[in-house]
Write a protein that binds this DNA or RNA. Structure first.
Lengths: 190, 190, 190, 190
DNA sequence: TACTAAGCGAGACGGTACGTCGAGTCTTCCG
DNA sequence: CGGAAGACTCGACGTACCGTCTCGCTTAGTA
């Protein structure tokens, strides 16, 4: 189907993998700001051009690496109630916050580079919003959310708190935080 | 005390002003990412060294410029009720979102540069949190907030939504948003 | 002899022609320095490998193109006297100086690349020397050249002046120059 | 006079010297073609920018190095006769042909790069021509050169043979060559 | 009619150097 | 001693070509 063969030497899957891996390694070792295309290329044993041929910036490489690795989007199985659903969702999400350096680096870049911001929104942020939104839609159809409560605002509240804490790093994102936030949302939708 | 006269030529107030002004101009014209120390110095008619002598990075210059200009911190006069207080606070805050490029640029830099993150938190973010916190403390003493509701989480909710929308730019930060958020918080604290 | 048929697809005469033509075009339009194998391949609608299979460098391509086109080596019919022979030879040679960019480019490359220098000497420069040398040998057998005059030095004088002017471009290579040089040589061999 | 002091840090004589020296070394070791700005900078312990600030290309660096070192232009003391003058001049000139790689490299570059060709002509080739021209002018005023002989052509003959042999490297540039060429010129000007 | 062998266009690959930009530092002279 | 000027080293940028390496396809001679 998408197996159409283009002429010329095909893209090297090996190089692609090496680049994404090198990006994540470099990021973990020295942080997003210290990451350079030249460094990634060197570590991956790859020419710079091979990176520039497929990605417009280091942020796009890292984004691909992130998506590649965490392919399994946050699952939202129907747990029967908003409380259960939210608890499961926040648990799964908070468990991923060891990714903090990656996430915070990408967001930093997005805030400084409007071009990358677009890709980051479309390919990451909005997709995650979508998952959470479904969860609230389900609660609405169950009658758990009072009329007049905008589910989009609820999404903003949950992800707002999440990102705000990720960025400021002034409060934990653990089980207790998860429970607190769940209760707050439940009170707010009555 | 601070009136002590150090030997040698005193710092030039003129240069300081020119630098802060040049930083803001450059930022407005080409964005935070395109801002450079060299560019600021050139525009301000100042040697690079003069900037490096007083600020560690371009972000610190911009932060100073921001604080210098918006010295009047968000006021929180006691309006008599949480609803009124919150409405006033959000109104005043949202009215400042024409500063979006500055705020978003500074946050972006903070996410990439831990050194600046420190300064940004202490001198800007935490101070703003403090203002909002006072407002909630007043509501607690009025008995408007149910026991068991952590006022810190409330602060995170309000600033979380604010920053999340500032960053994603997917929903407005206007009067309607202000009202919606106020109502949500009020429901959540009952 | 060379008619042996090797197995496999035979070399494409069409591609060979397209490559030589593209090389000359590119050379005329942007100069020798701006000529690249990649550019020639693109212009000729040919894969890079096809060029590398048959020529070691861009200079060799251009040399082939030059020899291909100006196959008719400078003729040296016996005109009966050294003066007549020289006049004819210089006339024919100088008439070819519209090739200046090609010649100068090839010489430039030869001066920088010893590998190509070899090919350039053998296939071009020394052949031309040979033609002129014959002319002087004829004059010697006619007794027009005094004993003790090294005909090789005479060749160097003629081609030396020719190349020196081609390279410096400070004096014309026209009919007058041709006559002047002829007279000088005649005086020098008495 | 030229001692006017410009503001700012003055150019580093140390760096200038290191760059010229590094250029000559690199040239001698690996040849002109293998010389790179990056290599020169590295060897000289200097930033690339410092080279680009003062020279437009590697050829200009090498030209400066050549002129710097061989500041003592070929001397042309009046020896009393054309034969003596020419012998002295050719002797001095031929004795410098250990510079062959430098000279040939510069000429090669000049033939490929019209921009550099200009500098090379003005600052090197034409100056040398001038020296030789003076020598012939002296001979004219002595009555040693027949009327109707263009001294410019004589210069072209001498430098033509010199450069032609430098480039083709097919015949020596030694004492014998010097004498042969002198005699040829003397015969040609009678 | 297949099979083998090479040439072909296309284009991705690992490299090297390019020329530029800005960082942060150093060195001059002037107020 | 602060400040404007501007040269310094350094590191990364994004680009251009190099010469090499697959791909699938074509074009021959051979079986």
């Amino acid at each position: 189907m998408s197996g159409e063969r283009r002429p010329g030497r095909p893209r090297s899957e090996e190089s692609r993998g090496a680049i994404l891996a090198a990006a994540l390694e470099g990021l973990r070792e020295h942080g997003f700001a210290a990451l350079t295309i030249e460094g990634i290329a060197g570590r991956a044993g790859v020419g710079k051009q091979t990176i520039y041929r497929w990605w417009p910036s280091k942020a796009d490489v890292v984004l691909d690496a992130l998506l590649d690795q965490a392919e399994e989007t946050i699952r939202v199985p129907d747990e029967g109630s908003l409380r259960a659903d939210l608890t499961a969702f926040l648990g799964a999400t908070f468990r991923q916050t060891h990714q903090r350096p990656v996430l915070v680096g990408l967001m930093g870049q997005a805030l400084l580079d409007p071009g990358f911001a677009l890709a980051f929104r479309e390919r990451f942020l909005f997709r995650r919003r979508g998952t959470l939104r479904e969860l609230f839609d389900r609660a609405i159809s169950r009658g758990e959310i009072a009329a007049g409560v905008d589910p989009e605002l609820l999404v903003d509240v949950v992800y707002g708190v999440l990102w705000y804490r990720l960025m400021l790093d002034h409060a934990p994102l653990d089980g207790a935080a998860s429970r607190q936030l769940t209760e707050l949302v439940l009170r707010a939708v009555r």
